[in-house]
Amino acid sequence: MATTMKDLYKEERPYEKCLACGPGVLSDTELLAVILRTGSAGETVCQLAGRILSLPDFEGLPGLCRIPMERLMELKGVGRVKAVQLKCLAELAGRMAKASAGERLCFDTPATIADYFMEELRHKEQEHLIALFLNTKNKLLREKLMFKGTVNASIISPREIFLEALEVHAVQLILVHNHPSGDPAPSLEDIRMTKRIGRAGELLGIQLLDHVIIGDRCYSSLRERGILSDVG
C-alpha cells in the first residue's frame, strides 16, 4: 500500500509542519511532498518527492519545468494523476512569476522585460522568439510567439513579424528570445537578424526598440550593447 502523510512520524509530516510554522520552513522536498500527498509501496511521500527532485538531468525544482510529462508518468509512484499535478504546479509557478514581474514591467527598461519572460523562457530547451508590438505610448498591443527552433538571420522572416505589426497598427517593436545554453551573449546570427529586422522596420516606420536575449537568470540587451545604434 502507498504510504500516506498520516503514516509518517509527526516530526516527518510536512503538512502539520506547515500548519505549525508556515510554508517558509519547509524544504523543497517537503513542499513537493505536500502536493503529492501519498508515496508508493514501501516508500514515504517525502522519499518519493526526494527521488523526483534528484532525477538525472532534471535535478531540483527547475527540473519540474523541463521534464516531459511522459517521463514523469514512467516513474514508480507517480503515474498519470501525479504527473499532471506536478506539471500544472510548474506551469502555475511560472505564471505567478510572470504576473509578479508584469507589475514592474517597463518597455524602456530591458531588465524588467527580462524579468517578465525569465521564468517562461529560461527552462526552454529550444529557442523561442517572441515579438512585442507597441503603440506610440509604449502600450503593449500584442505579444506573439513568432518562431520556435534555431533562431538565425536566414530563417527568421521579417515579413511575418511586420505583418503582425501592421495588423495591430504597432509603431514600435521589441524582440525577446532565449538561449537554452544559459549564456545570453548575442551570437553573430543574433546580431545579423536584429539588424535585418531593424532595417526592415525603418522602411515601414516601425522602430525596433530592443532585442532582449534571455539566459539562465541573466539577460543581454542589444540596445544596451549599442548594437541597435548602427542599424541603418
Rank of each mutant, 00 (worst) to 15 (best):
residue 40 S to A: 15
residue 72 L to V: 10
residue 98 K to H: 03
residue 28 D to Y: 02
residue 32 L to W: 02
residue 86 L to G: 00
residue 40 S to P: 05
residue 93 A to L: 06
residue 27 S to Q: 07
residue 30 E to A: 08
residue 98 K to V: 01
residue 97 A to E: 14
residue 49 A to P: 00
residue 61 L to Q: 12
residue 56 P to K: 03
residue 97 A to V: 03
residue 29 T to A: 12
residue 79 G to S: 05
residue 63 G to A: 08
residue 100 S to G: 04
residue 33 A to D: 03
residue 37 R to Y: 07
residue 40 S to T: 14
residue 97 A to L: 02
residue 50 G to P: 06
residue 47 Q to N: 06
residue 74 E to K: 11
residue 87 K to H: 05
residue 89 L to H: 05
residue 52 I to F: 02
residue 78 V to L: 02
residue 70 E to G: 09
residue 87 K to A: 08
residue 51 R to K: 15
residue 44 T to D: 12
residue 32 L to P: 00
residue 60 G to W: 07
residue 37 R to C: 10
residue 98 K to S: 07
residue 61 L to S: 08
residue 80 R to S: 11
residue 72 L to T: 08
residue 81 V to T: 13
residue 45 V to C: 11
residue 64 L to C: 06
residue 38 T to S: 14
residue 35 I to V: 15
residue 87 K to T: 12
residue 97 A to D: 10
residue 94 G to I: 03
residue 73 M to P: 02
residue 45 V to N: 13
residue 54 S to P: 11
residue 42 G to N: 07
residue 73 M to H: 03
residue 84 V to N: 03
residue 45 V to E: 14
residue 79 G to D: 03
residue 72 L to K: 01
residue 92 L to F: 08
residue 53 L to H: 06
residue 28 D to N: 13
residue 46 C to A: 09
residue 32 L to G: 06
residue 88 C to L: 14
residue 94 G to V: 09
residue 73 M to G: 00
residue 74 E to H: 07
residue 44 T to Y: 11
residue 36 L to N: 08
residue 92 L to Q: 04
residue 72 L to F: 11
residue 46 C to L: 14
residue 35 I to S: 13
residue 49 A to F: 00
residue 66 R to S: 15
residue 67 I to G: 01
residue 52 I to D: 09
residue 57 D to W: 00
residue 80 R to V: 14
residue 46 C to S: 14
residue 95 R to C: 12
residue 56 P to F: 03
residue 88 C to E: 13
residue 42 G to F: 06
residue 36 L to G: 08
residue 31 L to F: 05
residue 29 T to L: 09
residue 57 D to R: 05
residue 59 E to G: 10
residue 99 A to Q: 12
residue 94 G to W: 01
residue 48 L to H: 00
residue 88 C to Q: 14
residue 45 V to G: 09
residue 91 E to D: 13
residue 32 L to Q: 06
residue 50 G to M: 01
residue 38 T to G: 08
residue 35 I to G: 11
residue 84 V to E: 07
residue 93 A to T: 08
residue 57 D to I: 02
residue 46 C to N: 15
